[in-house]
Design a protein around this nucleic acid. Structure first.
Length: 291
DNA sequence: CTAGGATCCTGTCAGC
DNA sequence: TGCTGACAGGATCCTA
């Protein structure tokens, strides 16, 4: 599922395609000429606020993207499970081949929003399950309102070990559920929560407050380590994750436990990875070495 | 405060 | 073969 590394990978490409690299200090982004909404439920706010503007930059808040425009408004995009942002146009460097994972192609039956840009560029929003949301809000309100306003600090940004320890020691909820609570820590979802817990040798069912100071530190480091791996591989293209150029990430081939139920644990080699349900989500762990 | 379930959606897959 | 039904899953909302 798209989590911090996946959304960061999207952000980097959008930055390249929609804003461009600074040349001689000046950055000239694409202009948005038209916005076509095929499925209104996904689109919140006034699309006209985006029309005729130039794109200044792309920001990411945990799993949320913000496309900042030159008129004081921003397009906030939450892709959730199956949302895809696909760019087609002149700035596409490679041959621009589309992965089969681009559900329905572009444009296709799962294309719900289309941003027509200047210079022949187009940004498509595909979403099979229609869980994603795109909204137009004032740039100054992006960080304060809605889901983004409630986000907890995120790894590599403002998450500190002290805060992490504090949050963990204050609740009896299962540790994995706490890791995935976006209001406590931003950006960690199912894949990386599973992998981080395996790396730190902690059972996902453990009450959060039962972790020792040393385990808290191990887990903190493990989170950063697995997210870094995710970033290195350009995200995990399990389910429907693709990048704006239409290609896939590769972390799905490098997961530590996620999706590996039935395989022998890669560390102790003694038992097979189990899959259970925790907080309503598939949870993978090694019953022998995760205590 | 916490756990658990329902909701939103539809492709995929198991079962018959 | 073709139909039916269960299921996953991020975030939210509701109930117990």
């Amino acid at each position: 599922m798209p989590e911090l590394p996946e959304v960061e990978t999207i952000k980097l490409q959008l930055q390249k395609f929609l804003v461009g690299l600074p040349r001689g200090g000046a950055v000239r982004g694409h202009k948005i000429e038209k916005v076509q909404v095929n499925y209104p439920k996904i689109f919140i706010g006034d699309k006209n606020k985006a029309i005729g503007t130039r794109i200044l930059g792309i920001r990411r808040f945990a799993k949320v993207l913000s496309i900042d425009l030159d008129n004081g408004f921003s397009i906030v995009i939450q892709i959730k499970l199956t949302g895809q942002l696909i760019y087609r146009g002149p700035d596409l460097s490679s041959k621009g081949q589309l992965s089969e994972k681009v559900t329905g192609g572009v444009p296709g039956k799962h294309t719900h929003v289309i941003f027509y840009l200047d210079k022949g560029g187009i940004l498509y929003y595909n979403d099979v399950r229609k869980f994603g949301r795109i909204s137009v809000v004032k740039t100054k309100d992006v960080e304060k309102t809605g889901f983004v306003g409630k986000l907890g600090p995120e790894p590599f940004k403002d998450l500190t070990l002290d805060y992490f320890k504090d949050v963990l020691s204050k609740t009896s909820r299962a540790i994995k559920v706490v890791l995935m609570d976006q209001t406590k820590i931003g950006g960690v979802g199912n894949i990386y929560a599973n992998d981080a817990l395996w790396l730190a040798k902690i059972n996902p069912k453990r009450p959060s407050l039962s972790l020792s100071p040393n385990e808290q530190k191990e887990l903190y480091d493990a989170i950063h380590k697995v997210l870094k791996e995710g970033l290195k591989y350009g995200g995990a293209s399990e389910l429907a994750f693709v990048t704006p150029d239409g290609s896939e990430g590769n972390y799905q081939n490098h997961t530590l436990v996620y999706g590996r139920d039935g395989e022998f644990c890669d560390r102790c080699h003694k038992v097979k990875i189990l899959k259970i349900f925790l907080g309503g989500r598939g949870t993978y762990f090694c019953p022998a070495c995760q205590r």
